[in-house]
Amino acid sequence: MKSLTNKKKVLEQKPMSFWERLYLPAIFRGMAITFMHMFKKKETVFYPEVKREFSENWRGLHSLKRDEQGRERCTACGLCALACPAEAITMTAAERKKGEEHLYREEKYAAVYEINMLRCIFCGLCEEACPKEAIYLDGNIVESNYLRQNFIYGKDKLVEQLFKV
C-alpha cells in the first residue's frame, strides 16, 4: 500500500555482529548511566515529616460554607447531588423554623447532608453546580479508616467551623 504520509520508514534489520551479540559494550554504557544516578539529588519526600504543597487548583475534602454572619449557605436544592457523576451526595431538606434565622440563610436548609467519600471522585462538579456558593472542595486528603461506614461524611464533618471572634 502506498503510504499516505511520507513519514513511513523501513527499518533495516541487520543481523547482530559478534561484538553486539556479546552485549558487553551496551551493558557497560548502561552501567555508566546508572552509576551516575547514584550521585544525583534524591527525589524522595519524607512524607509524614515533610509534606508536599498542594497545587493551586487542588480539589480535596468538601466543606459546606457559612456566610458572613455564620449561617449555613446551603439551601438543599439538590443541584450538587444531580451534578454528581458518582452519585456520592445525598441530602434531606427541611424548612427553617422561626427563631432559626441565625443558623440558616435561606428558608430551606439541609437537615441531613451526606457525601460518601468512597464514591466521590473529587471532580468538582458539585462546586460548579452550586448556586449558593455553599460547597467547595478546598480541604485536605480524606483520612483513612478501617470501616466503610466511616467514609460517609455527614454535616458534622462537612460544615465549616464557626469563626471564633
Partner: peptide, 22 residues
C-alpha cells in the same frame, strides 16, 4: 547489584545463544 538494577532480563533464546554460541 549494580548490574541487576541496570540490565533487563534476557529472553530465553538470547540466554541460550549467549551461553552456547558466544
Amino acid at each position: 547489584m549494580w548490574v541487576r538494577w541496570t540490565v533487563p532480563r534476557f529472553r530465553y533464546d538470547q540466554l541460550m545463544n549467549l551461553g552456547w554460541k558466544v
